[in-house]
Amino acid sequence: MSTATPSAPTNKLGMTKQDYVGSKSTLCAGCGHDSITGQIINAAFEMSIEGHRVAKYSGIGCSSKTPAYFLNQGWGFNGVHGRMPALATGASLANRTLVNIGISGDGDSMSIGTGQFVHAIRRNIPMIYIIEDNGVYGLTKGQFSATADKGSHLKNGAVNELPPIDPCTLAIELGCGFVARSFSGNPKQLNAILKAAFAYEGTAIIDVISPCVTFNNHDASTRSYKHVKDHDFPLHDLGFIQYSEVEDVEIPAGETEIVTFPDGSKVAIKAIHEGYDPTDRYIATKAIHESMQKGEFLTGLLYIHAKHAPLPELLNLVDEPLATLPQSAVKPGPEVLAAIMETLT
């Protein structure tokens, strides 16, 4: 299968990292989104994700272009603005064996698509839901988005007077079982979060602060590389241990908290921020609110609840994909129609 040179490292499927790439990015040089794309490729490679099982969804905006830039072996669906979650919902029901990756932006998810964001979480659609969050509408050349901080400035000097919507506290409030925040400038943390998200069964919300180098990287912006770097407070050192590796890995004792997923994979969480418990949504919410008051970005796995039945399980669907069920499984016979007709006479 692998097309790269024999010397390139391979994963358990015998694939090289090259097998997980996509088309060349057409985003601005230095765009945070490209770093996220890079980490998705790394995480999928390291997790030995089967490319043909991947389905990628997006809405409209710069972020929504990125599914074309990774995992070319998977199927992609770039839909309409703010409605990526509906696509993931439909396809994940049609084929519950798919690995679903939804890419959205702060404009796509926190304005036109807020309703879909909310209800995807409520239904616990099996998907990784990444918000590439730069606080600005890039593709339409620099208007504020709903995650822009109060008092932050546009390049042209306009000041945002409205309070931001925070996707992470919103997601926790809605009962999401996997809520993370990261920074495109922190590849190590993002990699661990993405790998854990691949192992998670339901909706994994990952808000990635991803500076827009063209429209929102100036000194008065709260989403510039410099500002985010200076205000990034990682909660913990994260380690992700895939189920098949569990036997070989020695988990350090002491301050490290272990969260075990239903498939046996584990996340090792070594706290940096004192008193933060990512398995307690009340503590988590309080800490996030406090940090936001101070203008900080708490990053890491903000909240985790390892077992939370995703929609196909909740609907008690058959194990095989609905899409390819044979006619014999979905078309009742003539005796059924005859019996129904009898009740209508």
Binding site: Y57, G90, L315, V318, L325
Partner: peptide
């Protein structure tokens, strides 16, 4: 198994319903 061979979801609005229908069709469902 008693498991269902059809997924029925009451969506949050008609926009989402249409998205579900088309993406499910895209993925091969009726």
């Amino acid at each position: 198994t008693g498991k269902s061979t059809v997924a029925i979801v009451q969506m949050e609005d008609e926009l989402a319903s249409a998205g579900v229908v088309l993406a499910a069709g895209w993925a091969g469902a009726r």
